[in-house]
Design a protein around this nucleic acid. Structure first.
Lengths: 173, 173
DNA sequence: CCGTTATGTCAGTTTTGTTGACATATTAAT
DNA sequence: ATTAATATGTCAACAAAACTGACATAACGG
């Protein structure tokens, strides 16, 4: 099946080495990308999970708990722990929905917004530097490939100009 | 504050949005990319940590424990747990170094190599599909941006044609 | 011989995830 | 109006994967 000679015959055959490099690029980039904010989080005694919650609440003010769960793909018990901490310590605000009073709409408090800014500042700077160095054309390629890697369900988040939560379609449930 | 009209007035707005998309592309792509192999690993009662060890040992046959630690950036106690399991269950082989008999050179057993192939097959297929769909030019852009994101120390791994461990320079220690 | 290095191990802790069961308030449907 | 479904929360137990700190052993290098 994976005969070496295929390489010469089939121009679409992607070299093993090229693909392995792709795997490793993802590993190293993600490792170094997340390492940035972790130091700041330590200072607040928070972890990466708190960061993700803060980030997506910031991106989608007024998001419901279940929509947040759909994004994070974790259990409500896991979310509850970190979300509870963030609410108790005054970084996130819950207000009962007006249309549906069962919902707890989430939004950052000023304090939460300040932490969010501090956290993503580093990451934006890192991305910005990489974008600047690589050039606009490379960025377009980066986007194309990344969109191909992530699941179809989430792809639309990047094609619309509404933020993450705006176009949240209901899950199969 | 975040008035929609800002977009027309402030050229930094689009930039901000562009950078946030970059952050999210990394989050979603990594989440979905790793989700693939996790199911196979469950079957062996292994986790993502085992996968990383298997992967990098495969890429760098005869790698030392400390070089592996430098790549993974975890503590030796953490590594010891998963590495111990992999050795005991016959996926990885340790042989005493000949030049330096303190070293335990790591390599996959046939069984380990089989698992590695099974695991990365999915990931390679995912990358391959994304590459193929995006086109060669986009792939070059992807590589450029990713290299800009990951730390300078690891960048050389991708410029040489030797695999990951080949050019492992000594750490500052 | 002695200091350093490479590796391993014991013990305890933290973060972040999991399952399963159950409780409450609210909405929607019959 | 009652009942079923939904949105959320909570208790409890557990597991994976990281951490710190302390200590042990073997081998290298001067």
């Amino acid at each position: 099946m994976a005969d070496i000679s295929t390489r010469k015959v089939n121009p679409l055959f992607l070299r093993e080495e090229e693909l392995r490099q792709g795997i490793e690029l993802l590993f190293y980039a993600y490792r170094d990308f997340t390492a940035e904010a972790d130091q700041i989080l330590d200072h607040y005694k928070f972890g990466r999970a708190h960061h993700r919650v803060i980030y997506f609440v910031s991106r989608n003010p007024g998001i419901t708990v279940s929509d947040l769960l759909a994004i994070l793909k974790i259990t409500k018990q896991s979310l509850s722990r970190v979300l509870g901490q963030l609410v108790r310590e005054g970084f996130i605000d819950q207000k009962t929905g007006t249309r549906d009073r069962r919902q707890r709409l989430l939004q950052l408090t000023p304090r939460g917004a300040e932490l969010e800014r501090k956290l993503s500042e580093n990451q934006r700077a890192l991305i910005a530097a990489a974008y600047r160095e690589a050039g606009a054309e490379a960025v377009e390629g980066f986007r194309k490939v990344m969109l191909g890697i992530l699941g179809e369900e989430d792809r639309e988040r990047f094609t619309e100009d509404t933020p993450t939560g705006g176009g949240l379609r209901r899950r199969a449930s």
